[in-house]
Amino acid sequence: MLVEIIENFGAKIIKIIESVGRIMIFFLTGTANIFVLPFQFAKIIDHTWFIGTKSMFVIALTGFFTGMVLGLQGYYSLLKYGSEAALGSAVAMTLIRELGPVFTAIMITARAGSAMAAEIGVMRISEQIDALKTMHISPVRFLFTPRIIASIISFPLLTALFNIFGLLGGFVSGSLMLGINKYVYMDTVISSVSVNDITGGFYKASVFAVVVTTICCYQGFYTHLFKEFGARGVSLSTTNAVVQSCIFIFISDYIITFFLV
């Protein structure tokens, strides 16, 4: 009885260690292949189009409304202390340090990350990945490397877009609707944000790019290792990809913030 419990526990641990090892090898192979010529320029463009360009609208929209709600909430919280003039700095700091990178990463995970996992998962179950191997094309290089470069390009740029639209949203709700002087708003925004805050936000965005892409591609790539096969396997790996990406966005966010502050 006791032995059995320990055995099961041990089996779980071994499984976890195995998958950690697999994901590390997957990640290292993929990133090492960035430096292997020829450079996969056309594929990177395609994936940047999918991950970056097609996410612009949804990022701008969510950014705008996040800023609006921050302006609204911040205004009434600050009003209690008579510091509603500091609204600009409250909105700007929250957006640029935290919400911008995190929300952007989550939105891209939902839009592009799930698609990555599903697409690669379908390729796995329909033997397209095996077909690549029979043609002596490294599937990791072919599928993962261009995506991670496209993500590293797209995430910080989309984060910047999110921040700008967020500040605009805060301006609309705080200044146009609640009547804070627009010069005061802009001035508090400008004076409170330092270069370190902005670069910190971009560090986060780049790390999230790596985390999200690695997890999503990995989940799709190893779809066949699930107990469920076929369409069920793909749906499982897509769900896992999104859930795990979000979890690791928050965990890595804490770790980066810890080292940045």
């Binding site: 189009w49 970056g52 797209s154």
Partner: peptide, 18 residues
């Protein structure tokens, strides 16, 4: 997309980050 993204980034750094 890249141009818009870079413009946003520059705006953040130049105007807000001084």
């Amino acid at each position: 997309f890249v141009i818009i993204g870079v413009l946003c980034t520059l705006y953040l750094f130049v105007t807000l980050g001084s």
